[in-house]
Design a protein around this nucleic acid. Sequence first.
RNA 1: GCCCGAAUGGUGGAAUCGGUAGACACGCAGGACUUAAAAUCCUGUGGCCAUUACGGCUGUGUGGGUUCAAGUCCCACUUCGGGUACCA
Length: 1088
Amino acid sequence: MEYNFREIEQKWQEFWQKNQTYKVDMDASRPKFYVLDMFPYPSGAGLHVGHPLGYIASDIYSRFKRLQGFNVLHPMGYDAYGLPAEQYAIQTGQHPAVTTEKNIARYREQLDKIGFCYDWSREVRTCNPDFYKWTQWAFIQMFNSYYSLPPTPSTRGGAKPISELIAHFQQYGTEGANAACGTELSFTAAEWNAKSEKEQRDILMNYRIAYKADTMVNWCPALGTVLANDEVSEGVSVRGGHPVEQKVMSQWSLRVSAYAQRLLDGLDTINWTDSLKETQRNWIGRSEGAEITFHLSPNPSPQARGTNPKGNFKPTTNAHNWKLLIEIAKELRSNQTEAEAILWEEVRAGKIGYKIRRQHIVDGYIADFINLEKNLIIEIDGGVHLTPQQKEKDQQRTQILNDFGFTVIRFTNEEVKADPKLIASKIKAKLDELPSMQSAPLPCGEGSGERSENQGEVVVFTTRADTVFGVTFMVLAPESSLVAQLTTSDQKQAVTDYLVATKKRTERERIADKRVSGVFSGSYAINPLTGDAIPVWISDYVLAGYGTGAIMAVPAHDSRDYAFAKHFDLPIVPLIEGCDVSEESFDAKEGIVTNSPAPGKEMEDGLVLNGLTVKEAIAKTKQYIAEKGLGRVKVNFRLRDAIFSRQRYWGEPFPVYYKEDQPYMLDESKLPLELPEVDKYLPTEKGEPPLGRAKNWQTEDGFPLELNTMPGFAGSSAYYLRYMDPHNDKALVDKNVDEYWRNVDLYIGGTEHATGHLIYSRFWNKFLFDLGIVCEEEPFKKLINQGMIQGRSNFVYRIKDTNTFVSLNLKNQYDVTPIHVDVNIVSNDILDTEAFKNWNPEYKTAEFILEDGKYICGWAVEKMSKSMFNVVNPDNIVERYGADTLRLYEMFLGPLEQSKPWDTNGIDGVHRFLKKLWSLFWKEDSLLVTDAEPTADELKALHKLLKKVKADIENFSYNTSISAFMICINELTSLKCSKRAILEPLVVTLAPFAPHVAEELWHALGHTTTVCDAQWVEADEKYLVENTATYAISFNGKVRYQMQLPADMPTAEVEAIVMKEEQSQKWLEGKTPKKVIVVPKKIVNIVL
RNA sequence: GCCCGAAUGGUGGAAUCGGUAGACACGCAGGACUUAAAAUCCUGUGGCCAUUACGGCUGUGUGGGUUCAAGUCCCACUUCGGGUACCA
């Protein structure tokens, strides 16, 4: 009997289907094991040989576990929503549901041919309403939840109903609320209760886990849509080349950042590769540091006013006194005189038509009242001002202030108390007559009732608090809200130009680009530790989304700051003893601190870091700024909230409607909210997303429904739970079912998901865990990354301007153009010239210059893609060699995790292996299997294999286990062994790898039930004992000859024998060895 | 730019804990069988130099280092692949 793989494979695939061999049910009597593949996106191109790589690996593992007695859940489904289907729909007008359905059918057909042990009764598709119902349901739960932060570091926070937060606000306001939020708010219970429903809902958005907020997007007006960074290059869309700009858009987001610490901590509990965990750790990006507040220099500097040339300016505020004065000003504000209090009531909140501030610092003085628009200072004098000395001092002071461009008017306490309204009107009259100052006023100090804490200061986050003495400038992100506030009128044009330029660049371009760009805002800030005034710049190397959107620049110790400082000629102050910053910054966190403070700039009660190590200095600075109220110690995460809206058609609709512009959730009974039909898959004329085209896209009560849809990761975030209980319409997953299957024991998929899907689904699962829906906090216990299969392209070489093609090794004699040729008409790099002529009409008349009668093609490793003509379909391979050969060959190619090019060339080897295996059983039509007793050699060959294969499967080193099979079959073939006692365990061991041929041979051996339910055979060490060992005898590390010695010979004896050995004498050259090293059973090294 | 991987014959790869580099397979060369081809089987196959040898030298991307011993550990670099937040 021939090894007829086509017949065999078809027969057993039908058998498995008929017997429902792969159907799985809960079974409390057996331990569970859940093996999951990352489900595919069903693209129009069909499955290529790269896809099954991971599926085969997981299939082998599933079958192996089943042989070991586990109840194995191994499902498959489709990630069916996505951009390519939508793009195709836009181009062809075909409904994406139709093309997706077609693609899925093709995928399924291809998958079925490979003989996977999936339980297809559990299939899920993310685009099915009964699946996305639960995606929508989870979204509603997230909207109705907030994240309760842990009150102490040792306790843990979690998602809680938003109603609990509302109850807290009603009773206590924000005090003690401890909720993760977007911006920190502060209000009392009374204030909360006084707010309208709309105001309350607006505030709650700041706390919900699914919330709507303004975010920056790449907006392409011409396409009417938002683009990924991928789709934008040099400020224009990759598709069509239309201009793209950064735009603010209100979008749904998920508060993933609230889970940052738990996502980080959870990594320690799961069995993933270190590199993948490291990637996630970096992505989450926890940094411990400090937030430091830099107050703005309160009045425009001469430079900003244009009176001093650059480089020769003098800050108007007496910078060294700033820190001191701000404290006094605060104190004065709370201890103001009676007259000041009375007048304040008359002029505050713009009552006289001008904005008046009080206790404002100007130069070395604190002005009682000030209007910055017209630079008017109003002083209220008490009794002391009447003495002649004081009068003189006041005169001097007035003079100085006049020099800075201020007008000063004075009133006495008595005048104010007598008629405050009169004084107020006098002030107004004075203001009316004064001209407006050229420079825009700096908002600083007292506001007029609105939230004003952040006005007049820049808060930065730094992990290098120790470098605060080396801060020589500050940089704001272009998107920072402070930019508008801090830009002086002189700089307005330059800043505006810069912002326009930046708007064209995507975030990635900004990060990747080393070119330095930036613009001076015109304003100065005060370094709280040195009192120095430092310029505030704007540059796109600072990102709004990270930290506070502003940095303190320390050019001596940060390379980006260094490049910026060099470019704009800003000072660089080294802070580490002995470091050289003439060529580059010193970024390392090591060394002894100096220049902190610089000699001669010490302040009384000031911070001194000199002489400390960097580590000590960081700790000391943190402590200092916390104590002095200059900032606070803070943990910052790089992980951002996930933007959850897409302006697309082909995605899950949001279960959201709008009433008076406020989003509300649909009632759960209305789920699923099904995706409506639209006439075109394009944005509307108004620029709304495609759902804006849907008719009657509203609730029963007539409220409009959300027009955005959910992103790609929505459906993939909890699909592994749905497989457990795929037909449940009462719950995402039944509690008992979840408690049986718990979580995924083995997850196989590509590294490209490391920071997307694998973060989001961990977040999603933790959220469900907090709600008590699932019993495990981590979804994927063990994760293996499969490498990418790259394409191996073939080339033919056309002689220029002819239709003649020259073989690879002769091409240098001609002027040729390499042309991609379909790899499917090339075999072992030899072109099928007839097939080539028929491949493309253009080549119908092609002529060839051959070498040795063959046309040899060139080759290169490239991405597997249609345009390179290097796509290899698994169907073709299955047709030619069978599924078992494909399975073995994919695994034989190399280590699972490594990327490698697909090259069909080697496939004959594994096919030959299967034929050799077959010929151990069959010679023509007679079965060779006997019941004779196996010999020691035969048993050794088998048990070597059993041991190796088990260890290899557990290490996912499938390529070496296939080598082991080949070695074993080669040995058994030369031993002419066809004994049942050997072949039966061999078949069971092979069954996970090549299930069809194993099933066939299993039945040939007389079994009537499936080999899938056979029992795994364990290796027995007693057959593997070696009596002798081969020693490599080396001199100075170079192996010179080999020697067989008893395996249990003591090392001293080995040494003695080797030294006496004749061959050793030659290498010893009469010398006495300095040292002899004997490694038992391995090597002897003689050092001369 | 930043983060994570990878690099070994003509090719895919092996070497599991620092101990004989190249297992296994492809390809290639030579041979057997055959009218011939396919299939199958046998032999050889990292490079260089010798072939009188059961011979010598060299060799795991590059340059250094640690060690009796380095593909494996350390430092610096080169090239390639993946990710970089709206491809999936």
